[in-house]
Design a protein around this nucleic acid. Structure first.
Length: 210
DNA sequence: CACCAGGTTGACC
DNA sequence: GGTCAACATGGT
């Protein structure tokens, strides 16, 4: 890609794993729903909830906004935090029903980010996932895997610091942002335990000439 | 049986 | 402006 450390890591991850083509979803709205559901739970649980929502015709703005809260709780229970997630999904849908998803997603990146952050249940990571993967705008998503991997190659910082670093050191490209985040997650899940985190990435960089 | 998962929130320094 | 328990289920 280029010469910086972050670019070399990207090249290594892409070579080892190949493109991931995130986010797995049929529609932009499904990305938003998945982004809330996947918080602190495994994706397999989210898939179950999503298929249940689809079976009940709730994977669309208006129907989800008007859904019965007890039915929602039942459908998303497999994702944990079901009381919070059910009401937050409904609140999110109500917001998009009011303002229109097209209208909202056409806002400039930073304004869209702030708007998403104003929703209950949407913090930094979820907001950025929505901006990048649902609205298709350039925002780099930081998560626990990213923080851990950066720490292991000698880079520490809070969410906004790490995000700023990524956004200034790699090309500002939506597809690269999408792939990079996905690659970090998949690499971490595949090769790195909770403790010995990403020690291996340093070895890989050296041994493979990145 | 203990621990973790593609976090966020509100309370409290 | 940081830290921390609470939120909850399902898999290993």
């Amino acid at each position: 890609m280029k010469a910086g450390k972050l670019c070399r890591v990207y090249d290594l991850l892409l070579d080892e794993l190949g493109p991931q083509y995130w986010w797995p979803a049929e529609t932009a709205f499904e990305v938003v729903v998945g982004a809330i559901l996947t918080q602190q739970t495994k994706w397999t649980n989210v898939e179950k909830a999503i298929s249940g929502l689809k079976e009940h015709g709730l994977m669309e703005v208006d129907s989800l906004a008007g859904a019965d809260i007890e039915l929602l709780e039942e459908l998303v229970r497999c994702c944990g935090f079901y009381r919070q997630k059910s009401s937050r999904l409904k609140g999110m849908a109500a917001f998009f029903a009011d303002y229109g998803m097209e209208e909202v997603f056409s806002m400039p990146v930073e304004k869209l980010r702030r708007t998403m952050l104003s929703l209950k249940g949407v913090g930094n990571e979820t907001a950025d996932s929505i901006v990048l993967y649902a609205a298709g705008k350039p925002k780099f998503v930081i998560d626990v895997y990213t923080t851990r991997m950066m720490k292991c190659i000698g880079i520490e910082g809070n969410y906004m610091q790490l995000q700023h670093m990524f956004e200034t050191e790699i090309p500002q490209d939506v597809d690269i942002y999408k792939e990079y985040h996905a690659l970090i997650v998949e690499y971490s899940k595949a090769y790195c335990g909770k403790k010995r985190c990403n020690e291996c990435i340093l070895k890989d960089l050296d041994e493979n000439g990145y």
